[in-house]
């Protein structure tokens, strides 16, 4: 018994040695490849917009065989992404972890001191820029931004704007609206963009600044109405919705959907993941998805991406300081 067991172990060792040898040769031939499953850290909880998108990426990678190793999504949504940022900091030099980001990538370290400097992380790829639109219930009499401003003013500060939490992206857009038009909302936070959308259609709040993907279903069913888009150009999916800019109000805000890696990830690994996401951005599934959900598929990598992150961080710093000044 003991003998057979040892022999089996020996066989197994030999087999795995052969496997390692063969991977080593292919690695030489084709460059670096992941040696074990790759963690995909998500800066948000399960079920939200960011989570859904990250899982879509994972399934496309799996389906199209873009990675030789499985991708494991892990939600670390605590502290508006603080949990994820800290986790990535501890993974310094690790070649098997990437993180899906949203704008809390900059705002969270700006708002609370969690000992993280995003400049240290390795940028991989920006997959898309998500857009924001001002929405009202389809039963309301509001059709234009003028109607909206008049209605909010008439409500005398009791106008209910739904969102996903103070400091979240939609609260920044709300603050920008308030500053631009000199209006005041009552900001009601909910747990996720989907819940916000539902509460608008159910008549529990008066307006939202949802991403189009969160309102699309209701919009198609004729239950919610887009008023104005916070994009430089009109969104393809809503050709009749004007942008704030063309109405003479310079309000543009994006949600970036990117991937970053820990500090000092080996260069070959960075090249591998950059290539993987590049291939992903060209798949048919992704192209269709971005079109249907009104995302701007704006691919960016490397130093350009890092420059973008730093520029955005500076912008958000200014917006946040403005908000604090306004509320006090």
């Amino acid at each position: 018994m003991a003998y057979t067991f040892t022999r089996r172990v020996a066989l197994a060792v030999a087999a795995s040695a052969a496997l390692v040898a063969s991977t080593a040769t292919t690695a030489l031939a084709e460059g670096w490849k992941p040696q074990k499953p790759v963690e995909m850290v998500i800066m948000a909880g399960q079920g939200g917009g960011a989570d859904r998108l990250a899982r879509l990426f994972q399934s496309i990678i799996q389906k199209e065989g873009l990675s030789n190793m499985p991708i494991l999504p892990i939600n670390k949504g605590g502290g508006s992404g603080a949990e994820a940022l800290r986790y990535l900091k501890d993974k310094e030099g690790d070649a098997h972890v990437v993180m899906a980001t949203l704008n809390s990538y900059y705002t969270t370290p700006l708002r609370t001191d969690i000992g993280v400097d995003i400049e240290e992380y390795t940028p991989i790829a920006r997959m898309a820029l998500d857009t924001f639109v001002l929405w009202v219930n389809a039963d309301s009499d509001i059709y234009t931004i003028e109607d909206y401003v008049a209605a909010v003013q008439a409500a005398g500060g009791e106008w209910k704007m739904g969102g996903t939490g103070t400091g979240a992206e939609d609260s920044l857009v709300t603050a920008m609206l308030e500053k631009e038009f000199g209006i005041k909302h009552t900001y009601v936070p909910f747990k996720g963009g989907g819940t916000v959308a539902k509460n608008l259609v159910g008549g529990h709040i008066d307006s939202t600044v949802n991403n189009p993907s969160e309102q699309m279903g209701f919009y198609q069913a004729g239950k919610s109405r887009p008023i104005v888009a916070f994009t430089p150009d009109r969104i393809e999916a809503f050709p009749n919705v004007p942008t704030a800019r063309e109405l003479g109000h310079d309000l543009v805000y994006w949600m970036q959907r990117s991937f970053v890696a820990p500090k000092d990830m080996p260069a070959e690994a960075v090249a591998y993941y950059t290539d993987m996401f590049q291939q992903l951005s060209q798949t048919e599934e992704w192209q269709t998805y971005t079109k249907e959900k009104a995302l701007m598929a704006d691919f960016l990598t490397g130093d350009d991406l890092q420059a973008y992150f730093l520029e955005e961080r500076a912008k958000h710093d200014a917006i946040l300081k403005d908000m604090e000044g306004g509320s006090s």
Partner: peptide
């Protein structure tokens, strides 16, 4: 998430 992947759009339609 799965339904989105299969190209189905959950929602009123």
């Amino acid at each position: 998430g799965g339904m989105v992947m299969w190209g189905l759009v959950p929602g009123p339609m």
